[in-house]
Design a binder for these strands. Sequence first.
DNA 1: AATTTAACCAACCGCCGAGCG
DNA 2: GCGCTCGGCGGTTGGTTAAAT
Length: 378
Amino acid sequence: MGRTPCCDKNGLKKGPWTTEEDHKLTSYIQLHGPGNWRTLPKNADQQSVYAHYFSYFSFIVPSIIGLQRCGKSCRLRWTNYLRPDIKRGRFAFEEEETIIQLHSILGNKWSAIAARLPGRTDNEIKNYWNTHIRKRLLRNGIDPVTHAPRLDLLDLSAILGNALCHVNPAASLLALLAASSQPPPSLLNPDLLRVAAALASLQQENPELYHQQQQNLTDSQTTPSQLIQQQQADLERFLELNNNNDNNSGSQVSGKDNFASLPNDFGFWNTIPELSENCRSFQSCGAGLSGNNNGNGNGADWYQSSLISGGGGNIGNADSSVISTPLSSPAQVTPTSSNFVNGSLSASTTTEDERESYCSSLLKFEIPESLELLDDFM
DNA sequence: AATTTAACCAACCGCCGAGCG
DNA sequence: GCGCTCGGCGGTTGGTTAAAT
């Protein structure tokens, strides 16, 4: 047969540990080392017998009077609380940064994350994630599971709605996309890109339908999210139509592949240097748009950079080859906070609110500035 | 001052892979 | 090889404290 049961659960204490119990457990582990959790409570109890008979040795053998705890409970208490190398207290900004980065790669592998954060336990990190980081990400429109921006929730909606009502919608969308600066293909919302591409092509190839679109866009009753849905529906129609045309003309390029050639369809593409560079980066992203949208790998890095180090929103950053910005890259960070030290926020002085406002500002992609540029162009 | 609500976090629960007998 | 437990892990709960009403 197998091993004997770990412990008889009857009569074992549960709930919060007392300082006395902590002392017993710590003393035992200091003498015998951690491990063998199954026999630990029993041994600790045996130890208490010796301590009772040889009370004058109590300075060597602590006065353990029995630990009515399951071995599992002892292990948990030791690993999560009593271990001497545990670092208690508030998480530093760098630690938080590391957690987010690792979580974007490893997911909820708390032990794996903890292994890379000396002095922090998986339980502590998990709790901190659930009570602080996760909530903040949600508030900032980031999906804490995929680490992908939730476009439907961003301030982008308002900006988009406003822009679409007053200027060329296709150009607005493209400016919006360009303004987000080197997003990796895996993190871009392909639907949004397709909407932009379709609107632009529509303008050229089907002015009537395009006019109809504009009418929809200027309808003040339409919310931005409805707008996108509408446009997606129209887009599907358009792509279908386009597909048919392609088939009829014998073209190898399907409607859904049109994005790859998108930049060439825009006269204004190269008139603004900053935009043109970003648009080229979008062109290079085109091939990836049909791929997965899971937000892992480089995508996570890019998002990470946007959230923590300020990689996003810099329209002047035109190197399309650099999709993933290294974490804490000072060159990418907008040093708006007085606490900004060496490319990162000062760990000791950064408050929760400051962190949040800092992250929030980074997540807004600095759209207004980009639109100003666009307005100048218009 | 009393009550309610929210936030925090230690501890428990249940599952799974590895290993023992 | 099988059945069983251990140890580790992630998810969840519930008690405590702080803040809001």
